[in-house]
């Protein structure tokens, strides 16, 4: 009898394993052509990969509301889809985990100051939908070191966040200038900044915008200076998975809609009124003419929703990182193309 029991248990185990395996295979994995938009609509919420906390770009405030340039970008997509900027669930991701989270489908869009590079598109199977912040890597040091240039950093210990282009650019910069250095590598930028502040490193490096933002966290912000050299090109922007062109278009044109709105003088305050404007460009953008939104699976007033709820690019910039914020980063490269910057929205036509 005992051995019969044993065999039965074995049999049940074998069968259930088989069943588990069959089940594991049965629901076809979301094929690359699947519609992210449909999933988002069905779920009723956009899942947005965000920073774990970078002032001005993606950080929760004291009430737990996410704020920042990258965060508002996700709110803009949510507004375009749901006519509500708050149907977003933010998933804070470290630099190390962010791409895996996007690849595996855990998030719909990654809006987390990620640098657009060829390997991330060609090797990781991602696509950058645009550049919502043109940045470059730089160094921050203590004022008392009396250093004026990054080229004087030979022999320094440099704190850096792991798993970033920053880590590789740092190696390139010192190699290219034939200088020595010691990298002190930490999993999060918060830890890297903390150790820099504690004196473990002579310099802290990340993108210029990040330096402005992290400097606010230091015990004595005034004792630190950001060196002027920009050692890399860091086009930061939202990324999506490859294989869903419709979703790629929605994310890409959300950015362009915000740029075009700024260029055409459409703001959060005047959007509804400007929709009645006679200017054909504005009418097309805000959906008073044409049906461009519908071709993307949205409504024709998709851009109007974005501007009404979030505002144009210039407003979002000023509020989060520009004059209206504590960071006060000049527009620089992020000004519109007709104002000396690089931000250029293709026509809505």
């Amino acid at each position: 009898m005992k051995s019969f029991c044993t065999s039965m248990v074995t049999a049940v185990a074998a069968l259930s394993l088989g069943a588990v395996a069959a089940y594991a295979q049965a629901p076809a994995p979301p094929a690359p052509t699947s519609k992210t938009l449909e999933q988002v609509k069905a779920r009723g919420v956009l899942v947005c990969g965000s920073n774990t906390g970078l002032a001005g770009f993606g950080i929760p405030d004291d009430k737990g509301n996410w704020t920042g340039l990258d965060v508002e970008f996700c709110r803009a997509i949510s507004a375009a889809i749901f006519n509500d900027p708050n149907k977003v669930r933010f998933v804070p991701l470290s630099a190390k985990d962010r791409f895996t989270a996007l690849q595996s489908g855990e998030i719909d869009v990654l809006s987390r100051n990620g640098t657009w590079t060829i390997s991330r598109e060609a090797d990781l199977g991602l696509l950058w939908a645009g550049v919502n912040y043109y940045d470059g890597q730089a160094f921050m040091v203590r004022k008392k070191l009396n250093i004026n240039s990054a080229l004087e950093l030979s022999g320094a210990s440099v704190c850096v966040q792991q798993g970033t282009t920053t880590e590789a650019n740092l190696a390139d910069f010192f190699r290219a200038n034939n200088m020595k250095y010691e990298p002190a590598v930490y999993a999060t930028s918060a830890e890297a900044v903390k150790q820099y502040d504690a004196g473990r490193c002579d310099a802290y490096t990340t993108d210029m915008s990040g330096l402005f933002s992290e400097r606010l966290r230091l015990i004595n912000s005034d004792e630190h200076v950001i060196l002027p050299q920009v050692i890399s090109k860091e086009p930061l922007g939202p990324a999506v998975r490859q294989g869903d062109d419709q979703w790629f278009n929605i994310v890409k044109w959300t950015h362009f809609a915000m740029l075009n709105a700024e260029e055409l003088g459409v703001t959060r305050a005047n959007a509804d009124e400007r929709a009645k404007s006679t200017n054909p460009e504005i009418r097309r953008l805000l959906g008073s003419e044409g049906d461009f939104g519908k071709s993307m699976g949205l409504t024709s007033d998709w851009a109007l929703r974005i501007i009404k709820h979030v505002g144009n690019y210039g407003e979002s910039y000023a509020r989060n990182v520009g004059d209206g914020s504590r960071l006060r980063i000049p527009r620089g490269l992020n000004n519109l193309w007709n104002k000396g910057g690089l931000q250029y929205g293709p026509p809505v036509r």
Partner: peptide
């Protein structure tokens, strides 16, 4: 039977992962 079941489970897990990774352009 149990051994075959286990091997098949492991193989299908690997195969499933590889297929999904290829589909998503992950090396």
């Amino acid at each position: 039977a149990l051994l075959v079941g286990l091997v098949w489970l492991a193989w299908s897990a690997v195969e499933n992962a590889a297929r999904n990774m290829r589909a998503r352009g992950i090396p």
